[in-house]
Design a binder for these strands. Structure first.
Lengths: 334, 334
DNA sequence: TTGAAAGCGCTAACAA
DNA sequence: TTGTTAGCGCTTTCAA
């Protein structure tokens, strides 16, 4: 049994002003006298009035919600510490603006169609794209919908289509590579993320920037951001470059896997092999030894992503992608 | 620039019937002639019409959305493989019914207030509660709102307040304990989940059911469902019960941590020590050796959770909690 | 079986 | 600065 909720009409009666004035007071319109404002406020508290979004939506043509589209197989996504930060930040910041966050998964083709139907149906004011890969067909389709969209982290090869906020992966990788060189490491190797993700590509580029000709194919192994992937890659590197004395790993989770393999194969960290991670996620301080890593300011990236989206929704012209600097966090592994 | 979308009016004109008939046709009302139905269908396809949910909402008094409230610190939640299954299942099943899933986090007090305001504001038709702990104040507050609510997995001590779908944790634990006994293990220990979660409590109860007086305090160690928690607990057990020859671990992730510690401390699995997990999550088949574990039918639990919620929303009387049987999956670790 | 028409609760344009 | 009023797009009586 649903209770009948008070409407703007009830507030108007209780406060002795018209519905129009109540609406203005509620929406922060400047043309409201202090007296009217106070009366409305009191009446709202008294009646327990809450705006009916459907009604508002109908006239404003705004839905008051944005969709977060998860386009990566979710298993991977949830291992990613970035995601939980993003989710918390997003729900909070959006809630402050009375915007709600609708989740949709876009793993397979059927999912994608649902997402497009939803978006085409005008059910959302904006789109928050998570971990779309460079080849993701969803990106193109989304373009056609003409709805404001932003990505958290850039979408490789689509940087100009969809604005984003991201950490400076390339410079972050350079910081770590320089540090390893400064520590006197001679045979420096790397485990990358997938090459169709910005974290995979740009961090490798940064690595190559510093290592130059020493960054041969032989010292590069690709992973998939999972712990198991890190293990596999570390095994491969050890087999191929038995005398390696450093490895820069493209994520902390993979680095945790690499650490396990190094220990298993009798290499002491950091004495025999220096290990550097990337992310500064919680796992970085729970490994043994604790990970030296590159910190990316996730909260700020998340905040900025939301800010960009809200700005677009508010009708700002094209917005500029934003990149945040990273910093080296030195612990025990390098 | 938002494109003007066709309304029911356009469909009415295109199909030559009235708006009322279009609405009836769209909503499956039986009093629509075959001819009218066909005409409407054609016109919908032609115009690309999609219903405006705000307008519908306004008259039906339904919002067409349910909130998923995440009341656990998210870091833990996302390590939980159950969550990703639930999220995918929920978005899909709800989408089939044209219901969208709004996410809210309820980590701290401020979050909880936001959630309550949202719910009290009538912005959702139902609530999907995730991993609320027994002491969670949100549960009580939610009760007051009088909105249909279900939980995925029971909420300890609140089983009668909020209906749920869950796996039979207790019997699952019994299956594993019996198996370990049958294998001739003599010193069987266990690592549990947190005691304020059903998986923590009921799996321990099942363990005790089978072990009887052998389930002393000494052989029980509590974990927190994280890999690190599993490592810590395994260390503690080995220190306290050096001659243990089996350990039943309350989750696969913790079991992975336990395996690492056992290897580190020179115990061979399963020869010296048998290790049993719980969940049959992806991690179970990626460990070395692969985990013998208890499979819980997550997809079905998730499906059922959604079904219960939709049923409640549709005004069904009180619904019964549902429990699904588990099964033993024998791999290499035991 | 259908059409006409009355709202659902709100915002915004207009007039005062 | 305020009140009045015309819709926003839809469902659902009510009559026919």
């Amino acid at each position: 049994m649903r209770v009948k909720r008070p409407t703007i009409h009830d507030v108007a009666r209780a406060s002795g002003v018209s519905r129009g004035t109540v609406s203005r007071a509620l929406n922060g319109d400047p043309y409201v006298s202090a007296a009217a404002l106070a009366a409305v406020r009191r009446a709202v508290a008294e009646t327990g009035y809450v705006v009916n979004r459907a009604a508002r939506s109908l006239v404003t043509q705004r839905t008051g919600s944005v969709v977060m589209v998860l386009s990566e197989p979710q298993e991977k996504l949830f291992e990613d510490p970035n995601f939980s930060v993003l989710l918390r930040t997003a729900t909070r910041r959006l809630a402050e603006r009375d915007v709600s966050l609708v989740m949709m998964t876009a793993g397979d083709r059927g999912d994608r169609e649902r997402v497009m139907r939803y978006i085409r149906g005008g059910h959302a004011d904006g789109i928050l794209l998570i971990s779309a890969h460079s080849g993701d067909p969803l990106v193109e389709e989304l373009q056609g919908a003409g709805l404001p969209a932003v990505a958290c982290g850039s979408i490789l090869g689509r940087e100009n289509l969809i604005p984003y906020a991201a950490a400076d992966d390339r410079e972050g990788a350079r910081q770590m590579a320089r540090y390893l060189v400064e520590q006197g490491r001679k045979r420096i190797t790397t485990i990358t993320g997938p090459m169709d993700t910005p974290g995979g590509l740009y961090r490798l580029e940064g690595f190559c920037d510093v290592l130059g000709r020493r960054a041969t194919k032989k010292v590069i192994e690709h992973g998939d951001y999972t712990r198991q992937g890190g293990e596999r890659a570390m095994h491969a590197l050890l087999d191929r470059v038995p005398d390696l004395d450093a490895v820069f790993v493209g994520s902390d989770l993979m680095a945790a896997g690499a650490l396990a393999v190094l220990r298993e194969r009798g290499r002491s960290v950091p004495v025999d092999v220096a290990v550097g991670g990337f992310d500064d996620s919680p796992v970085a301080s729970s490994t043994h030894p604790q990970l030296t890593t590159v910190r990316q300011p996730l909260e700020r990236v998340a905040e900025e992503t939301i800010r960009l989206l809200l700005e677009l929704i508010d009708g700002a012209g094209p917005v500029e992608p934003v990149t945040f600097p990273t910093s080296l966090v030195i612990r025990e592994s390098a």
